[in-house]
Design a protein around this nucleic acid. Structure first.
Length: 257
DNA sequence: TTCCAGAGAA
DNA sequence: TTCTCGGGAA
C-alpha cells in the first residue's frame, strides 16, 4: 500500500497516549537501569508526547520507504539500513527497487548485479548474501511473499531482531518497538537509564521500549519515527542540540559545554 | 577521526 | 562480552 503521509498519526493528546500505555509498567522497567524514582520522569515524558509528535510533523525526515507498506520493500530496505546512514540508502533506493521489485526478481539476479547496486553503502558482500537469502526465503517457503512472522523473518543470515521487528511494524502494522543506537541513546539520556552494550540485542531493552509504544499501529509508527529522527537530527552522539529538542523539558541529560 | 535504522563470530 | 565488518559524510 502507498502512503501519502510518511509518519502515521502525529496528533495526540496526553489523555490519548496515557490510555494506550501503562505508566506503572514503564516505571517498573526503568527502575532496573536507573537510580531514584522513575515515576515522575515517566509522567513528565507522557506530558511531552504531544509536542514530540508535533516536532515530528514539522521537522521529521521524509524518505521513500516511509511511503510504502509493501513488505518486500520494507524488508529489503531494513537490510540496507543496518549501520548505514539513511541518506545513503535514499540515494540508491529508486535504482535498487527498479531492478529488484520483488523477491523473485532479486533471487534470479546474479551477485554482481546486486553488489553493484549497494556497494556505496558498505558491507557489500554481507548485504548481497542477506538479500539473496531473504528473497530465497520468500520465494521458496512463502510463495513469493514476505512472512509476517518474527522468527521466519530472522532466518536469513544477518537479519536479526531489529530488522525483523521493523518489518512487522512498518509493513504489517504491528505495534512493536524497535531498538537501534538512536532510540537507545535517547532513552539513556531522557531517563538516565544505564544502557547495556549492544542494546538492540537485549530482550530487557525491547521490553522497556515496548512499554512506551502505544497499541495503535498508526501511533506506534509515528512515535518510532519521532525517536529515529530525533536521534539523527537533534539528540546526536557528539553534539546534541538540546536547545532545539522537543523533549528538553522532560530530559535528565544536560548538554556539556 | 568518528559514527551510522546491526548482527555474527570469536 | 568484545571484535569486526565498510564506504561515505561530518
Amino acid at each position: 500500500m502507498e502512503l501519502d503521509f510518511p509518519y502515521g498519526k502525529t496528533e495526540i493528546t496526553v489523555e490519548e497516549y496515557e490510555g494506550q500505555i501503562d505508566a506503572e509498567e514503564i516505571a517498573d522497567h526503568l527502575a532496573e537501569g536507573t537510580t531514584g524514582d522513575p515515576a515522575p520522569r515517566v509522567e513528565s515524558f507522557i506530558y511531552t508526547m504531544p509536542q514530540f509528535l508535533d516536532w515530528l510533523d514539522s521537522s521529521g525526515r521524509d524518505y521513500p520507504w516511509r511511503h510504502t507498506t509493501d513488505p518486500w520493500r520494507v524488508y529489503a530496505t531494513e537490510i540496507l539500513l543496518q549501520r548505514t546512514r539513511a541518506d545513503a540508502v535514499a540515494n540508491i533506493y529508486e535504482g535498487f527497487f527498479d531492478r529488484f521489485p520483488s523477491p523473485n526478481a532479486l533471487m534470479k539476479s546474479n551477485d554482481e548485479m546486486i553488489y553493484t547496486q549497494i556497494k556505496s553503502l558498505g558491507f557489500g558482500n554481507q548485504r548481497t548474501r542477506s538479500l539473496k537469502e531473504a528473497a530465497e526465503l520468500c520465494v521458496t517457503q512463502y510463495d513469493g511473499t514476505v512472512p509476517a512472522d518474527l522468527d521466519a523473518l530472522q532466518q536469513p543470515w544477518r537479519v536479526g531482531p531489529y530488522s525483523a521487528r521493523a518489518c512487522l511494524l512498518f509493513a504489517f502494522n504491528q505495534p512493536i518497538s524497535l531498538v537501534d543506537s538512536n532510540i537507545a541513546r535517547i532513552i539513556e539520556r531522557v531517563f538516565g537509564y544505564q544502557m547495556p552494550n549492544q542494546p538492540h540485542k537485549k530482550d530487557s531493552v525491547y521490553e522497556l521500549v515496548d512499554t512506551l509504544i502505544p497499541d495503535t499501529p498508526e501511533l506506534a509508527r509515528s512515535i518510532t519515527f519521532a525517536f529515529l529522527d530525533l536521534g539523527a537530527l537533534i539528540c546526536t552522539e557528539p553534539h546534541p542540540k538540546c536547545n532545539e529538542c522537543p523533549l528538553n523539558s522532560c530530559c535528565l541529560f544536560t548538554e556539556p559545554l
